[in-house]
Design a protein around this nucleic acid. Structure first.
Length: 285
DNA sequence: ATGTCAAGTTCCGTCGCTCT
DNA sequence: AGAGCGACGGAACTTGACAT
């Protein structure tokens, strides 16, 4: 979809892009300043120059060039071109307070899955994530990335598709879990585990050295990133279908890989009451 | 060459959302 | 609590078409 995009060009907004598409100018290669467009020669010239630069940046696989020029709700357009270098990312923390710390991080790249645990291998994350050019998260621009940068003291200046804004643009709102339900994704054994439960599981692990709690937490954290790939592909196909490029090839829905971590249901049942109690104490901002 | 107008873009401030 | 963004409305600015 990136090669059909003109929105990243300064001076080109949604209206101009729509009118370019309507004139049959649907990709960079078909742009020809001899076309009968309602644009001045100066503007045609500027667009041609910008497209030449865009082609150069795409050849160099510079995802950030496009991410920084597109609004967050349109970052899905990068996905097909940079999918091979994408990491689906999610963190769990000790809460939402300004001084909270990270308990675990899960990363999935479409084949490899990695988890990072505070007190074990958390410090490996900062180096490992540099292997990727594109991050895919849900609300990661506001939460995951700022928290990682504060806690680990590193910079994550990757191109970043934050599905929160992409999904909102497609009409899916109300948080990740609700979006998953709306898109027909089921969580199975993890249906009643959420972010607050993850906080409790981490505390149980620390308090009792309970490996089942940690295992359940990792299962939850990893399932989030596994689902992110499915949601990303579905969102890409939906957004493409609503664009004038609706006839373009849709991406196949990826198969869901097996989660190597297992939910311990007795642990979930045991702490459900504690989570319900904590939820009742949660301030309504 | 100059003035006017419309359309499109950009910028600013405010508010609500979402994450654990 | 705090971050980044979209939505929204309003204002300023740019650009191009057209008339004088």
């Amino acid at each position: 979809m990136l090669r059909h995009t003109f929105l990243h060009i300064p001076g080109v907004g949604p209206k101009t892009e729509q009118s370019l598409w309507a004139a049959g100018l649907t990709d960079w290669a078909s742009f020809d300043d001899g076309l009968p467009l309602k644009l001045t020669p100066a503007k045609k010239n500027r667009i041609a120059t910008e497209l030449h630069e865009s082609q150069r940046q795409l050849t160099a696989m510079n995802a950030n060039y496009f991410a920084s020029r597109l609004p967050a709700g349109q970052h899905w357009r990068l996905f097909n071109e940079f999918r091979d270098q994408a990491a689906y990312l999610d963190i769990e923390t000790t809460g939402l307070e300004a001084d909270c710390t990270i308990s675990t991080i899960a990363v999935y790249d479409g084949s490899a899955m990695t988890t990072y645990v505070n007190g074990q291998n958390l410090d490996d994350f900062a180096d490992d994530i540099q292997r990727y050019k594109l991050l895919v998260t849900y609300n990661g621009k506001c939460f995951d990335v700022p928290v990682i940068e504060r806690v680990l003291g590193c910079r994550l200046d990757h191109a970043h598709i934050d599905l929160r804004y992409v999904l909102a643009g497609l009409g899916f709102k109300g948080g990740l879990k609700r979006c998953e339900t709306q898109m027909g994704l089921s969580r199975g054994d993890l249906a009643d585990v959420d972010g607050l439960f993850a906080v409790v599981l981490w505390n149980v692990y620390l308090r009792n050295n309970d490996e089942r709690a940690l295992e359940t937490l990792l299962a939850y954290n990893l399932q989030d990133v596994i689902n992110l790939e499915m949601i990303m592909v579905s969102a890409y196909n939906l957004a493409l279908g609503r664009s004038p490029m609706a006839g373009a090839t849709k991406l196949p829905i990826p198969r869901i890989p097996r989660n190597p971590h297992r939910v311990d249901r007795p642990t979930v049942s045991r702490y459900q009451g504690e989570v319900t109690f904590l939820r009742s104490l949660q301030p309504k901002w």
